[in-house]
């Protein structure tokens, strides 16, 4: 059963359709990779699914329309990790992660036992505990990305929507973040993650949703099937070199296709 589902989403900006009748749903235990060329509407779709952007169509959380959910309750169920997330103030790492408990906060009370447990767990999961006292503005890009992910996880969401959490990270930290997301999904969370790196997407996601430049879903299937269908190469306009390692398929972008062969 799907936890969060978007049906027939249409969104246009300046007369140009960004999303044109997109369907996407995610259930508990799934790590769905949202991929597609630049400008295909991946981030827009994620914002719509998070309830941050109004679009035509229907988004439902637990089969109940998203707009019927009270703001705070929706914030408790859906975690959202903004692209290039950052903190404007030089707060300590622990304070930033603590902010993730905001949707759970009572109007007057301080931190409860459950809050502290969730904060400690999120910091441990994202491997940021050893620099909990450092200022978030003094961190490297990789460290900061993990802190921001910890902030989103501290809210104990059932659904996590992450917009390019691996962008700008070195391979080690890219793998670290993706392994964490895949692990969270394996633990019962519903994860949708926007990715540009096809290798990471094919390796770590349970399902891939490929958006094309017209804002339509070109494919929504398991990574291996997506590779077999040839849709990836057509939509991106590239030639892929395919291979396998340890029984899992991978693909390397090799060269651009001539313009007339692009989808």
């Amino acid at each position: 059963m799907s936890l969060l589902s978007a049906r027939n989403i249409r969104f246009a900006r300046g007369g140009r359709p960004i999303l044109d009748g997109v369907d996407l749903s995610v259930g508990a235990g799934e790590c769905v990779g949202l991929i597609g060329p630049n400008g295909a509407g991946k981030s827009t779709l994620l914002s719509v699914m998070a309830g941050l952007l109004k679009a035509d169509g229907a988004v439902a959380l637990d089969d109940r329309p998203l707009e019927q959910w009270p703001r705070a309750e929706r914030a408790r169920r859906i975690g959202f990790l903004e692209q290039g997330a950052n903190c404007h103030w030089p707060l300590t790492v622990e304070r930033v992660v603590t902010l993730g408990r905001l949707p759970h906060a009572s109007p007057w009370g301080g931190e409860a036992e459950a809050d502290r447990a969730a904060i400690a767990r999120a910091m441990q999961q994202c491997d940021v505990t050893h620099f909990a006292e450092r200022s978030v503005t003094s961190l490297s890009g990789g460290e900061r990305a993990r802190v921001m992910l910890a902030r989103a996880l501290a809210g104990d969401p059932a659904v996590l929507l992450a917009d390019e959490p691996a962008a700008g990270l070195d391979p080690y930290h890219q793998l670290q973040v993706m392994e964490l997301l895949a692990g969270l999904a394996a633990g019962g969370m519903a994860v949708v993650v926007v990715l540009h790196d096809l290798t990471l997407a094919l390796r770590h996601c349970t399902r891939l949703c490929l958006l094309d430049e017209a804002g339509k879903v070109a494919a929504d299937t398991a990574p291996a099937d997506l590779l077999d269908s040839g849709a990836l190469g057509r939509v991106y306009g590239i030639e892929l070199v395919r291979g396998g390692h340890e029984g899992a398929p991978f693909a390397l972008p090799w060269r651009r296709l001539p313009v007339e062969m692009r989808a």
């Binding site: 309830g51 914030a75 959202f80 903004e82 997330a85 404007h88 103030w89 930033v96 902010l99 949707p103």
Partner: peptide, 14 residues
Amino acid sequence: DALGLGERTAGSMG
């Protein structure tokens, strides 16, 4: 506090 993390993030936090 939430706004310090950016508008969209603050929005997602309710």
